[in-house]
Design a protein around this nucleic acid. Sequence first.
RNA 1: GGUGCCAUCGCCAAGUGGUAAGGCCGCAGCCUGCAAAGCUGCUAUCCCCAGUUCAAAUCUGGGUGGCACCUCCA
Length: 466
Amino acid sequence: MHIFDSVQKTKRKFTPLKEGKVTLYVCGPTVYDNAHLGHAKSALVFDLLARVLEANGYEVTYARNITDIDDKIIKKALEQKKDIKTVTDFYTEAFHTEMEAIGVKRPTLEPKATQSLEAMIDLIQKLIDKGHAYTTPDNDVYFDTTSDSRYLTLSHRNQNEEEKQERVVSSHHKKNHADFALWKNVKDETIAFDSPFGAGRPGWHLECSAMIEKHLAYSDTPFAIDIHGGGADLLFPHHENEAAQTRCATNHELANYWIHNGFVTIDGEKMSKSLGNSFFLKDALKEYDGEVLRFYLLSTHYRSNFNFNTQDLEASKKRLDKLYRLKKRLFGVTPCSDETAFKKALLDALNDDMNVSLSLALIDEMINSTNETLDTPGKHKLLKREAVANLAYIEELLGFGVKNPFEYFQFGINEATKERIETRIKQRNIAKKAKDFSLADKIRDEILSLGVHLMDTPQGTFWEKV
RNA sequence: GGUGCCAUCGCCAAGUGGUAAGGCCGCAGCCUGCAAAGCUGCUAUCCCCAGUUCAAAUCUGGGUGGCACCUCCA
């Protein structure tokens, strides 16, 4: 298996720190608002990574945090006149529901900031003791970036002279412009936690380092964990700062491999809450099956930027439809248990830095050749069983085709309409038998106006939402 | 301004030194009462210029265009 390490900027062969095991940490959401398509993309990418690692036989411990301490959360709670916890619980649950809808499995661990305060305080104390952190006159605790000789080696930045001069002037008691808060002393009555440094709140970058130490870190390897992931915008300053805290406090580097996914854009511009062009997952789920969104968002390489538009989404849906039609065609067939050439090729493609595009090409070729054979006379028993096994593998690895194929094609149709369609189909079949094709066509047109296609097959008449 | 990424058929998108995968759309055909679905066939020399090489979409240099990070951000 090879993955592209965004710190070394090269595709590297993956070798775990401990034989047969993988520790993976991904930066999760700050729960103050609904998840947009960008959050979905990131969750999807690392869900796929975890699946591929597991398919390679690794025992994967995957942690994705939930940031439930944050200024934006406090702001939201004040606006809505609600408790912090009411707000964070609401959005955490929404996140879970929406992730489930797009087939993202729950990570092994989902640590929350509010449950990790002790670990964060420990980490700050270590940094203070070792001279990497200092307290300001305002009683904030800051990380001293100049105390870390390897600072900026992760994101490959350099501090230019101009910036260095400017920062002395503009800083609020910070020694250096790049220094960041580990603990913010509370200056209002909103929310505060006790600590040896006074009542306050932890800085955002801290929680990931603390959670990794608490839940995942090895103590006898040069790196705390195997893989750290997140969106490309987190490389700097978030991951740079995490890495600095961890190496300075613990004497090991944070992660052996770093993976960053590309952005979801709209009209070529990054989707973000601050730009106000977010497309919320919950809204997309009203229009489209979650699996269609999964397929679409995962259909291009994870490191590329992904320009969202509904035309491409529709094209993706048609591609997924083909998979489900084959599934429908093979409904009830027992899979064979043998290895198939297809399965091997599919895993090989995904093992190459998650080459989903190549996997999709392989899947389409498999679907086409299976359909082709099925169109010729004969029972094709073995081929059918192999094809079903292949489809099951696609489900397991990529999470495509997990639904009942008949239900998949009925997305968004209510029960009353379903009954009406079934009744009309029966009437139409009577008309067909009587060779009254004008009535049959009239009924078909009527059903088509509901957005439903009829398909006459030797096994009977089926229907699908267009 | 600093740093980095990207540019392949109408659209989406693999390939990163050996002569252009796949999907959508379109056209022609098979099948079908007619459709739908399925199947078959057809459609690019890779932003521009120069260079390296027996050989480049793939490497180097220079352009042009787009995007991102440097502030909260998946």
